[in-house]
Design a protein around this nucleic acid. Structure first.
Lengths: 167, 167
DNA sequence: TATTGTTATACTCTATAACTATA
DNA sequence: TATAGTTATAGAGTATAACAATA
């Protein structure tokens, strides 16, 4: 989205915070801002890979989740909980994926309230193909060293646990 | 958005990747997925703080950027470059902030093509107030230890530099 | 010709509230 | 009463393309 800047804008922001008397929170501010920007870069890379398959990241995540579920199916609310997204987001994603022939809805055999989502054969195939591409084009050259990966995983797992994502 | 899960869904995904023969990229996949989720959690916290002020994160970032600029003003394309967002996003943000009386557009004195954006007194005041709130409610208890902050800052700066954000 | 900015358009994801059906 | 899911509605950010004005 343009040429590289001559200076790191986030490091500049950190210095600005310090000069305003907010030195005590300048470090966390910079870390958090950097996470926001990093997510933006990574999401753009991921969506570029998925676009030829007609998938967004949210829809890919649902396909991938189903690909690892028993019988390739899950109740809607389970998918919502595991993907940490709002139920309406799952409804929306399933609507699109179903229209594309990648998943199917079916009634739960014993609980009439719940709807099951299941991969179709086409959905299973696409999930694998898209994952192989993401592995090759994004994850294999992530921009993080093996040490970085270890540290990130530990730091972010602590954060997510502390935020109430899991116990 | 629900009770904590009994297990870390990202650690589970990593194990699934390993069991599928993708062990070589399972680590980076997990790190990247964790970044996406962490961003989501942090953005929700930030927007909750900003909502009473009628600000979104994107609009707050523009106000904060202007607050540190000389004369509290910048050309539109400078703001776009520094915030790393699309020009249309800046146009949109400035439209809303201008309607709220927080910024003003003015013509550039020597280059007739460029538009300057400048904080109004109300905008400057709100930028400070909102920052103080973010500092107190989000950054002061970020969920990252001082060591985490140092490591994150280093890892993510390397990543962003490598991604072409700055030199 | 290249750059700056706006407009129009379209497509995401997200969230709230209201509603139906079932447990 | 509580839960599961859908629908309607609204709002957010993002991107592309076309365009006007200026350098």
């Amino acid at each position: 989205m343009g040429a590289p800047l001559p200076r790191d804008p986030i490091a500049d922001a950190q210095r600005n915070w310090e000069s305003r008397g907010w030195a005590d929170v300048a470090g966390p501010m910079a870390s958090i801002t950097a996470i926001m920007r990093t997510q933006q870069i990574l999401l753009a890379r991921i969506e570029a890979v998925l676009k030829p398959f007609g998938l967004t990241f949210a829809r890919y995540e649902l396909l991938a989740l189903l690909g690892f579920a028993r019988e390739a199916q899950l109740p809607m609310n389970k998918a919502s909980a595991l993907l940490q997204v709002h139920p309406t987001s799952v409804t929306n994603a399933v609507d699109r994926l179903e229209a594309a022939g990648l998943v199917e809805r079916s009634p739960h055999p014993t609980d009439g309230r719940t709807t099951l989502v299941r991969l179709t054969p086409a959905g299973r195939k696409l999930a694998t193909t898209a994952t192989v591409e993401l592995n090759a084009q994004v994850f294999a050259n992530s921009g993080f060293s093996p040490t970085d990966v270890q540290q990130l995983t530990r730091i972010l797992a602590d954060f997510r646990r502390n935020a109430g994502d899991f116990t």
